[in-house]
Simulated assay, not measured.
Amino acid sequence: MARLAHHVFFVLKDRSPESIESLASACEKYLDGHEGVVDFSVGTREAELNRPVNLDFDVSLHVIFRDRPSHDAYQTVEPHLQFIAEQKDNWETVTVCDSNLR
């Protein structure tokens, strides 16, 4: 089975450094360390890389899963659901990009 990359880009309603840091910390608290995760990172947009091809976002989440079943199970685990419940009111938009890795 192919590994699956789950990339999520968040634009916040409040784009202050404090709100950005709060969301990045919540990603680390709730979304790392799940069964089947082989790589995890969270980051913030590099303002100086303001090219037309760069997506406008505040926080990026990057999770590589061992396989599709691991990804599917992650979608329903309590910490992931709690993260969404606690954070979703802070999001202006969310863009999810899932892909099979070669």
Rank of each mutant, 00 (worst) to 15 (best):
V37D: 00
E28S: 13
K29Q: 13
N54A: 13
L55I: 12
V8N: 06
P52S: 10
R45G: 05
V38F: 08
A26L: 10
L31V: 07
F9E: 04
D32S: 10
P52K: 09
T44M: 14
Y30D: 00
S41N: 14
F40L: 03
V53C: 12
Y30S: 00
R15W: 07
D56N: 12
S22F: 00
R15Y: 05
T44R: 10
K29R: 15
V53N: 15
L31M: 09
F10R: 05
Y30K: 02
G36V: 06
E35K: 13
S19F: 03
E48T: 13
S25Q: 10
L55K: 12
E28W: 05
T44G: 04
L49Q: 09
V11G: 02
F57I: 01
I20Y: 03
G33P: 07
Y30E: 02
R45E: 03
Y30Q: 04
E46K: 09
T44V: 15
K29C: 04
H34C: 03
V11K: 12
C27L: 03
C27F: 05
L31A: 02
E21Y: 00
R45Q: 11
T44I: 14
A5M: 09
L23R: 02
S25D: 15
K13S: 08
P17T: 08
L23Q: 02
G43Q: 05
S19K: 07
S19Y: 06
N54G: 08
A24I: 02
L31T: 01
Y30G: 05
A5T: 06
H7R: 11
E21M: 05
R45C: 01
G43T: 07
E18K: 11
V42G: 00
E48Q: 12
R45A: 14
P52I: 06
D39W: 10
E21H: 08
V37I: 14
V11L: 11
H6S: 03
E28L: 11
K13I: 15
S19I: 03
F40Y: 12
N54M: 13
S25V: 01
V8S: 05
A5S: 15
R51C: 09
Y30R: 02
G43Y: 07
S25P: 04
H6M: 09
P17K: 15
F10M: 05
V38A: 09
A47E: 13
V38I: 12
H6W: 06
V37R: 03
L49V: 08
G36F: 01
F40T: 07
G43K: 05
G36Y: 00
S19L: 01
